[in-house]
Design a protein around this nucleic acid. Structure first.
Lengths: 359, 359
DNA sequence: TTGAAAGCGCTACCAG
DNA sequence: CTGGTAGCGCTTTCAA
């Protein structure tokens, strides 16, 4: 293995001091154009790049951020991560990804979960990240564990932290809430316009951020349209295909009357399609379907799935910029406006039995 | 922001020298149990952890590896990455993920693509990764670009590199080939047993590692079963759902006669299902379907998709261990045996017209 | 405009 | 067993 070229070698070879080389590398003023040119030539010749390591020890910046995520194999997070990474790189930051596999914590004790995530926090400190982004996980829960809270506080007292999740009182991080539930209103509006009154809601985890806001929008919409609420129409579970499958199975088992359903996302809708097929029910003839978050190929479903495009294209960049601003102590408040859009495809039609008009 | 605790502070507070503290941190021998206990107490009190940074400058190890991947949003790669990260962490290594977004390079020039990936290589050097894992991308192509080749060589001359892709002659990396195409044989065997003779192959990119091996297995199987080959039955495109859709559309447009098809993976099969539905064709009544690589919920398809489980559960660990062994100069050759398995579900049945028996 | 030198936090070697 | 100290590669004063 060749040893990397050091600044000293460059200095020697170009007949200047280390300090001068450092100046031209960092493009600082105060170097004679003559000298600069000479050094640059040597730099190029050796394809020199400074070591993040040493640069860090000196300057106290690693140009690295850490991202802590529950499940990179979940398309929802994978898509987000891509944006994060791209946005970070644009600003010359690299990204450490930590996959907490939070979803697989079902069997674990409160304490294990806490220390799991806490361990990552420590790692971020250790790796000298300039800042960290915590996505979901515990912070998506209505209540975080005490040791988690402590760990987060500790992390935040060392480096800037942005969390995508519920605000935890008394902790010095920037909290960003993503979902407003506005899109769900669009969907509910559409469904009621078609005449549906018995609308189910499936998927998502009770108490978790996104689910809560979507669920409460669903409930609010029901109220707004003067339609009664029925607990029996709600089956939460989780965000994946098998969860959609089991949720729909459960709904069917309950025997509640419904003519349409909202799935928390495409994965869940996909599972629900399957369960409906098992039961010999047809979409949209028997049941109409809408997904609250399109993130995989809804338009390839059979029938094509009507869904809400949350239009989160710039969300990743927004989040990263927020973190970077925190890191560099700038106050530039960017605004992010996301307007969800209902993409109407083939999975909805008027119910066979119209809802009694009430309003 | 609190400043991190340094080894010096610990030393001062426990009344020993820096060197001694370093010893207990690294659990080296030659410290009086008495002293050790005292230092450990102080360490614990401050929740001290050494800075990867400084540790690296001293010891020349960052305990970090870089992983360069084409597309983390692709479930195939996402699943792989998870394994990589878990396996690495088990060995106390952290992972830098670089998403080259290689798939989006279609419009870019040869040169841009090369320098793109090369840039990541440089970054890995810069970040002082102890080793790097290059997954697919250019190395999956039959021929790598010249500047890419040079960059790879340069990287490999500095740190250990493992590449998951085609062997590039004359470069000092460890190359690992994943796919043997064996699973495709299983699928072809099953299909021919059912009586299919006109079997199409869709998806994948011509010339790319996985596709080539699957395609050649497909061709070999055809030969082995004494069935003629027909170029018209092969439509490559790419690995995603829209690609499966367009490939099947193209197949249908050609008007070639076929009773079954192999899709390079589930995504592609999903798109194909859609295209078939568009054409009013039913699976499996009219056409039988098999996916060569199950990675998303094949069992939730309608009808449930028969597919090959490549059983790559331990592949990630194998790869990481290989890299780590390279890094630490150990020769321990682990063996990896993966036996693909055909999971029969509902998407295949006997063709309406039986193939003429030939053998 | 330039160079010398003092760190940065830690490891590793050499004495005691 | 323990402490002193010389690096590691780079940044950043401070003088010249």
């Amino acid at each position: 293995m060749d040893k990397a070229v050091t600044i000293a070698q460059i200095a020697r070879e170009s007949g200047v001091s280390i300090a001068t080389v450092s100046r031209v590398i960092n493009d600082l003023s105060g170097v004679a154009p003559e000298t600069k040119k000479r050094v640059e030539a040597v730099l190029k010749k050796h394809r020199y790049t400074s070591t993040a390591f040493a640069r860090g020890t000196g300057r106290r910046q690693s140009m690295t951020i850490g991202i802590i995520m529950p499940d990179i194999a979940n398309p929802y997070f994978a898509a987000m991560f891509q944006e994060f990474e791209a946005a970070a790189r644009e600003k010359n930051y690299s990204v450490f990804l930590c996959n907490t596999a939070f979803y697989s914590c079902a069997g674990k004790s409160e304490h294990e979960k806490d220390s799991q995530e806490a361990e990552f926090f420590q790692m971020m400190l250790d790796k000298h990240a300039d800042g960290v982004l915590v996505v979901g996980g515990q912070t998506d829960l209505p209540q975080v564990g005490e040791s988690f809270r402590a760990a987060l506080q500790r992390l935040a007292s060392h480096i800037p932290v942005v969390v995508l999740g519920n605000k935890v009182e008394g902790i010095d991080c920037t909290f960003i809430q993503r979902e407003t539930g506005h899109g769900v209103f669009l969907a509910m509006n559409y469904l009621t316009m078609l005449g549906h009154g018995r609308i189910a809601f499936i998927g998502g985890e009770t108490g978790v951020g996104i689910t809560s806001s979507r669920l409460s929008s669903y409930l609010d919409a029901l109220k707004a349209y003067g339609i009664g609420t029925d607990e029996g129409l709600i089956v939460t579970s989780d965000y994946y295909t098998p969860d959609g499958y089991s949720a729909m199975k459960e709904l069917l088992r309950r025997g509640v009357d419904f003519t349409a359903f909202l799935a928390v996302n495409d994965n869940v809708a996909f599972g629900a399609y399957r369960a409906l097929a098992d039961a010999g029910l047809q979409i949209p003839k028997d049941i109409s379907a809408i997904s609250c978050d399109q993130f995989f190929s809804a338009e390839y479903f059979v029938p094509r799935l009507t869904s809400i495009d949350q239009h989160n294209e710039d969300f990743g960049r927004f989040v990263i910029h927020t973190l970077l601003n925190d890191i560099n102590n700038v106050q530039k408040n960017e605004a992010l406006s996301v307007t969800p859009e209902l993409i109407i495809r083939e999975s909805c039609e008027k119910p066979k039995r119209q809802r009694k008009e009430i309003y």
